Simulated assay, not measured.
Amino acid sequence: MEPQLELKSDDFEDKLCHWSIAEEQLDVIWSRFCALYLPATINRLLNLPVPTDFANAHAWEREMAQPVDFAVSNAWHEMLVQVQHLPYFAKYLRSSKAMAAPGKRLAQVLAERLTEVAKPWDRKMRLASEDEQKYYMAAAGAAGQLLSTVCTHFINKPDRRTVISSEVQLRLLPFLTAWSNRYDRQFLGDVSLRLMVFMSGPVLDEEFKKIRKSYKNWEVCELQDCNVKRDLKMCAR
């Protein structure tokens, strides 16, 4: 039997400390990115280029390069997945400035694109190889999580059809229902359930309100020791 490595409590606390520092440093990097490129990233996501170079990719990755799938799995979408928890993202969605206007239709576009891939992805989650199933479950979960985050910032709108059209909701809800049941207590299932709650209207909004309230200091820079309140998009510290 191979000897097991004994992890002392002090070592464990040190590792947690280093991990926390790494997370904080990463948030600084993401915040700098948002300060400089968030509007441009969202604009590009809403107006995607045509994918071309997937010649050496795996078969399912080449499928993801098709126009419909690529719209939900691309570099710009992934960047928003990474920065969606930052105050910069929240402030952009709440901003009334012209440069943030595209963000007002972000939920609708994300929902439309998820709806387009829901049927083929659902089939692959059930019938494809184990690796592909995990791949598409993760992709759908990430897409749903980003959509849920965006929807959270529009929780004050009682008519959810102004955020996601009724047509798209009707097309997406059957898949969200299936995923919430099939993947109960898993990431995709939890995300699907949150989206169902949002689409149901204000009656079940308490959880979304808690998430929305978790964003503090909306109107100031979140960088430590920085109290700038204006032109946050220009800050690159």
Rank of each mutant, 00 (worst) to 15 (best):
K91L: 14
I42F: 03
K91E: 14
K134D: 13
W19F: 08
A100N: 12
L5S: 13
E112Y: 06
F175I: 08
A55K: 07
L195E: 01
D11I: 04
E130I: 14
S9Q: 15
D190N: 13
W60T: 13
R212P: 00
P102F: 05
E23R: 10
K210Y: 05
M125P: 01
C151N: 08
N74W: 12
C221G: 00
E61F: 06
L110P: 00
C235W: 05
Q25T: 10
G141S: 10
V28P: 05
K213L: 09
Y136A: 02
N181E: 14
V191F: 06
M1E: 12
W121D: 03
Q169D: 01
R237Y: 12
V168N: 01
R113P: 00
Q66F: 00
D14S: 13
M199N: 00
D225I: 13
K209D: 15
P87F: 00
L110E: 09
A143G: 14
P51N: 01
K124C: 04
E2M: 12
M125W: 10
V168K: 02
Q145Y: 15
N56W: 09
K157G: 08
W30T: 11
L16G: 07
E61G: 02
A142K: 12
E112T: 03
D159Y: 15
V191Q: 04
L46I: 03
D53K: 10
F175Y: 12
E167N: 02
W218M: 02
K229W: 08
S129H: 03
